[in-house]
Simulated assay, not measured.
Amino acid sequence: MRLYALCDQDMLNEKSITLETFLDIAKSHNAEVIQYRNKNADIAFVKEQLIQIRKQYDGFLIVNDAYELVEFCDGVHVGQEDLKSIDSNVLQAVKILRSVIKEDKILGISTHNEEEVLQANAMDINYIGLGAYRNTTTKKDITNVLGKNLDTIAAKSKHHVAAIGGVKLNDSFENVAYHVIGSGLLP
């Protein structure tokens, strides 16, 4: 299993966990990637957090949504709704994003079903997040839980797949490159 650690600021605040503690936990599990997600802070705070993470962590650092901060990390992850806020045509939205973040940066998007995975196959991206695998506490609005079907759908992707949504360290997949785990890492 390869670990992609989701560092959600709301989760840290809710559990009274410092950023430094989360990073120590992620590193103790050999996380290859850390995604920093903060849906509520201003861009200056997100930038400060990315700089702090970079000081303590030397693996791949991905920012959620804030593509304007890509210079402070290795790439960007964007959800379907956030893509649609860039352009109603998600294929065009990815082209716009790629023109902003350039080829030397990682670009990943969220997918939730086979149709979105097949659509992503035509995109210039590095990976997809696929899920939710099961219900999770970090996202309250999950409407589509894939369960065991996640692995079958993942097999249809030409990109690396990161299983998202309620994934645990001991989950096993055949067609998934990364387990994305957030609160599941915390005590």
Rank of each mutant, 00 (worst) to 15 (best):
I101K: 00
N113W: 01
N113Y: 02
V94G: 07
S88D: 14
N113C: 12
R98F: 01
E103I: 02
S85A: 14
V100T: 13
G108T: 07
T111W: 00
D87T: 07
K95G: 09
A93W: 06
I106K: 00
N113G: 08
I86W: 03
L107F: 00
K95I: 08
K84Y: 05
V94K: 05
L83D: 10
H112E: 13
H112C: 04
I109V: 15
S88C: 09
V100I: 14
E103R: 05
S88M: 10
I96K: 13
N89P: 12
L97V: 10
I109Q: 04
D82A: 06
D82I: 10
N89W: 09
I109H: 02
L91F: 07
D82R: 03
D82F: 05
V94E: 05
D104A: 01
V90E: 13
K102H: 11
T111D: 06
E114Y: 04
S88L: 12
S99H: 11
K102S: 12
N89R: 09
N113H: 09
H112L: 02
L107S: 06
K102A: 07
V94L: 03
V94I: 13
G108S: 08
N113D: 15
G108W: 00
E114H: 08
E103M: 02
K95A: 13
S110V: 08
L91H: 13
R98A: 03
K105D: 04
I86Y: 05
E114P: 06
L107G: 06
L107D: 02
D104R: 01
I106N: 00
H112T: 14
I86N: 08
K105Y: 02
N113F: 01
E114I: 14
S85F: 03
G108Y: 00
D104S: 09
R98W: 02
L107T: 03
S99D: 14
D82N: 11
I96P: 03
S99E: 13
A93L: 06
N113P: 12
N89Y: 08
L97F: 07
K84V: 10
R98E: 03
I86R: 08
N89S: 14
L107R: 02
A93C: 10
